[in-house]
């Protein structure tokens, strides 16, 4: 077993190098000028917090870049130069003033990690579906009202963070993301929990806090890999019995809903260690029952 783990870790190590800049392996340059002057073609460029409104000239000539950080600038538009960088695996445009993502984003089909958190993006083009190697997509804190149906083509996605947007529905194709492990839908405008969202066999963490969800489908129990669930600050009155099929569940936050009683067979959640029920009208008798049913769980009422 140990051998297996170490083999897996070795494989992962090789992969890990690709998804994050490694300043020990290769230099991370701080300006286009120094990158161009480098003895070998620059692969990593960090232009964070440089206060620029436009991409620096000649950025597009750095054809070997696989890591580009543009965080904390004043970019309102992602200009074409960036889409010439076809080797890019990591692109961060966090904390700028972008209002949309251009269609050319589809050109960057080697992207593994794309972070556009903290912009004013309202529109995601369907070309995002061309990013079939994308594993980490961060679109939190934007003004997105809809994801394109092609999101379902991003089949390598492990992390999809679309929290703090204006979403009230997701395309059915979302259920094609069979590798999705971490799904953050919190602080949106969802009124319903779509049954399609129960078709993520790899999903380990689901965060839908601060929405307006009133009920959950029985099939939520199909999310067999789930370890952490955040349903706090919704309008749930009860959980379906199917919920107790979440055999790997460790952390469940249901604070500030309208739950009086938990499912009868709640004791099936043998791995549950943390249950948060503060701000719910749970009766004293139910509290007593929950403590007995879940002896290994720390319960907050």
């Amino acid at each position: 077993m140990k051998t297996k783990i170490s083999i897996a870790l070795c494989l992962l190590a090789a992969m890990a190098q690709a998804q994050n800049a490694n300043p020990i392996k290769e230099p991370v340059y701080g300006s286009v000028a120094t990158a161009l002057a480098a003895p070998k073609p620059a692969t990593q460029l960090n232009l964070r917090d440089q206060g620029v409104f436009h991409l620096p000239e000649q950025l597009g000539t750095l054809q070997q870049l696989h890591f580009l950080n543009l965080m904390g600038n004043n970019l309102e538009v992602l200009e074409d130069d960036v889409f010439k960088l076809k080797q890019l695996e990591v692109l961060t445009v966090k904390l700028n003033a972008l209002r949309y993502l251009p269609k050319s984003i589809g050109n960057l089909n080697k992207l593994i990690n794309f972070d556009a958190t903290d912009n004013s993006i309202a529109y995601i083009p369907s070309e995002i579906g061309k990013l079939t190697k994308l594993r980490f997509l961060h679109l939190s804190y934007n003004a997105i009202t809809a994801l394109p149906t092609t999101i379902g083509n991003c089949k390598a996605l492990e992390v999809l963070a679309v929290d703090n947007n204006q979403l009230s529905f997701l395309p059915q194709e979302i259920s094609k993301l069979k590798k999705l492990k971490n799904f953050n839908l919190s602080y949106n405008q969802f009124n319903e929990f779509d049954a399609q969202w129960t078709k993520f066999p790899a999903l380990e963490e689901l965060n839908i806090e601060f929405n307006h969800i009133k009920e959950l489908p029985q099939s939520i129990g199909d999310l067999k890999s789930l370890k952490s669930v955040f349903f706090n600050n919704n309008r749930l009155a009860a959980l379906p019995d199917g919920f107790t099929n979440l055999a790997n569940l460790q952390l469940l936050s249901l604070a500030n809903n309208n739950i009086k009683e938990m499912p009868r067979n709640i004791g099936k959640l043998a791995e549950l260690r943390t249950l948060i029920l503060t701000g719910n009208p749970v009766t004293p008798a139910e509290k007593q029952r929950l403590k007995q049913e879940l002896p290994n769980c720390k319960i907050y009422f």
Binding site: A8, L9, L12, A13, M15, A16, Q19, N20, N113, D115, T117, R135, F136, H138, E158, V159, A161, K181, N182, N184, E205
Partner: peptide, 12 residues
């Protein structure tokens, strides 16, 4: 930013 590249169960 979420992501567990080495699969150790902890976000990176």
């Amino acid at each position: 930013a979420a992501g567990d590249v080495n699969g150790d169960g902890y976000q990176d």
